[in-house]
């Protein structure tokens, strides 16, 4: 046995391996940021498109919100979290594409040959889309508050919690899509269609109560439905807010925490699919 091999398994070696993994993750993140700088269009669209729709739809939503008994509340209480959820789903496609393009550029074998573990590769790929999604949420909510009169009577910390849980769902969905599908065309179709269908079904465009009656019972199959339930509990009903003390008759905190737990359940399911089906040596087809 060589000197190098005899070193394997010592605490020093294990620490070095962990550091190696972290440096690999950092290297991939830096590279993703370089690529993003060269082509920021997908990120811009992720933020710009929902802003456009928020501006166009907020007035129309005033009535729908009032219909539910929330008088004097602007439609942005529906459109801001709704558009954030719907367009966050495109982040799954962005993550999947970040992996597929490595196959298209034939750089995937080089990354693997660089000794990066599957965990490091995926962690590096996930971090930049995760950051993008969180930035998207921040920009949309700030835009809503400043320009669309969004009035959150609940806790901003709970908004951040919901956004984080939903981001985890989207990223796990992105990994599952990457694992299951073989071509970038399939990924585009699934993520684009998925964003629209799950967004619409879950109440991302209009409140679930405004959807056809036969659709309402199946709305919970969409993660957007659970995120919107939690957002509405905070923004409209003030959960966690200053006016929601023990005797104020507010909805309980569990109305936010349970949907968040369900979102994490969705994330666990998608992650399981990814773990079961994602093989680093599996070729993916990108263009042509």
């Amino acid at each position: 046995m060589s000197v190098i091999e005899s070193d394997v398994g010592t605490p020093a070696k294990r620490t070095r391996d962990r550091r190696g993994g972290m440096s690999g993750v950092r290297a991939i993140v830096r590279n993703e940021l370089r690529i993003l700088r060269h082509d920021p269009v997908p990120a811009v669209i992720l933020v710009a498109m929902p802003i456009v729709l928020m501006v166009l739809l907020s007035n129309a939503m005033n009535l729908a919100i009032a219909d539910e008994g929330y008088l004097g509340v602007t439609g942005s209480a529906q459109t801001v979290p709704g558009m954030a959820c719907v367009f966050a789903f495109f982040g799954a496609g962005i993550l999947a594409f970040a992996i597929f393009r490595e196959h298209g550029w034939s750089t995937w074998p080089r990354l693997r040959a660089a000794g990066l573990s599957r965990r490091s590769l995926l962690a590096g790929k996930v971090i930049v889309p995760a950051g993008l999604l969180l930035v998207q949420h921040v920009v949309l909510f700030v835009f809503g508050v400043v320009l669309l009169d969004l009035d959150n009577v609940g806790s901003w910390w709970l908004i951040a919690l919901i956004a984080s849980c939903f981001t985890v769902v989207v990223l796990a969905a992105g990994l599952a899509v990457t694992a299951v599908f073989q071509t970038v065309q399939q990924v585009n179709a699934v993520t684009n269609l998925g964003a629209m269908v799950l967004g619409g079904l879950g109440g991302g465009f209009v409140p679930v109560r405004s959807l056809p009656e036969w659709v309402q019972p199946i709305a919970p199959i969409s993660p957007v439905n659970w995120a919107m339930d939690a957002y509405r509990a905070v923004i409209l009903d003030g959960v966690g807010g200053p006016f929601c003390g023990p005797d104020a008759g507010c909805r309980p905190l569990s109305d936010v925490l349970i949907p968040c737990a369900v979102l994490l359940g969705f994330a666990a399911l998608f992650t399981l699919i990814a773990v079961l089906f994602l093989r680093p040596d599996q070729p993916k087809r990108t263009w042509g």
Binding site: M1, S2, I4, E5, V8, R16, D17, G20, G24, N31, R34, I35, H38, D39, W105, S106, T107, W108, P109, R110, A113, A114, G115, L116, S117
Partner: peptide
């Protein structure tokens, strides 16, 4: 002296590979 499939950290420091297909980032 070590199994390159199992000890990826060794590969990282000891092996350089140019695969058959050209693999570069066109935007960079």
């Amino acid at each position: 002296g070590v199994d390159p499939h199992r000890k990826r950290s060794i590969v990282r420091s000891s092996v350089g590979l140019a695969p058959q297909e050209i693999g570069i980032y066109p935007a960079l």
